[in-house]
Computed example of a mutant assay.
Amino acid sequence: MSPERLLLTSIHDVGPRSETQVDRLRDHLAAHVPVEKIAMLVVPDHWGEAPLKAGTPFAARLRDWADAGAEMFVHGWYHRDTSAHESFAARMKAKHMTASEGEFLGLDEETAYQRMTQGRALIEDIIGRPVAGFIAPAWLYGPGAHAAMARAGFAMAEDHWRVWQPGAVERPLASGPVITWASRSKPRIASSLFAAWALPTVLRWKKVARVAVHPGDTGVPALLESIGATLRRMTRSHRPGRYAELL
Rank of each mutant, 00 (worst) to 15 (best):
P3S: 14
P3R: 14
R5P: 04
L6M: 07
L7A: 02
L7I: 14
T9R: 12
I11A: 13
I11P: 05
R17S: 09
R17Q: 05
E19T: 00
D23G: 11
D23Q: 10
D23N: 12
R24F: 01
L25R: 08
H32Y: 04
P44H: 03
G48N: 03
G48I: 11
A50K: 04
A50M: 03
A50H: 04
L52I: 03
G55P: 00
T56A: 00
R61S: 06
W65I: 13
E71H: 01
M72G: 11
M72T: 14
V74P: 03
V74M: 05
Y78T: 11
H79A: 10
S83W: 05
H85P: 09
A89S: 14
R91N: 05
T98A: 01
A99R: 13
S100M: 08
S100E: 11
G102I: 09
G106L: 12
L107P: 05
D108I: 01
T117I: 09
L122A: 00
V131Q: 03
V131M: 00
G133A: 01
G133N: 10
W139V: 11
G142N: 06
A145L: 10
H146S: 06
A150P: 07
R151F: 02
W164H: 10
P166I: 13
A168R: 13
E170F: 11
A174H: 04
A174L: 09
S175T: 15
G176H: 08
P177E: 14
T180G: 10
W181K: 07
I189E: 02
F194S: 14
A198R: 14
P200G: 03
K206Q: 15
D217T: 08
P221A: 13
E225Q: 14
I227V: 13
T230P: 05
R232N: 09
S237V: 10
Y243A: 03
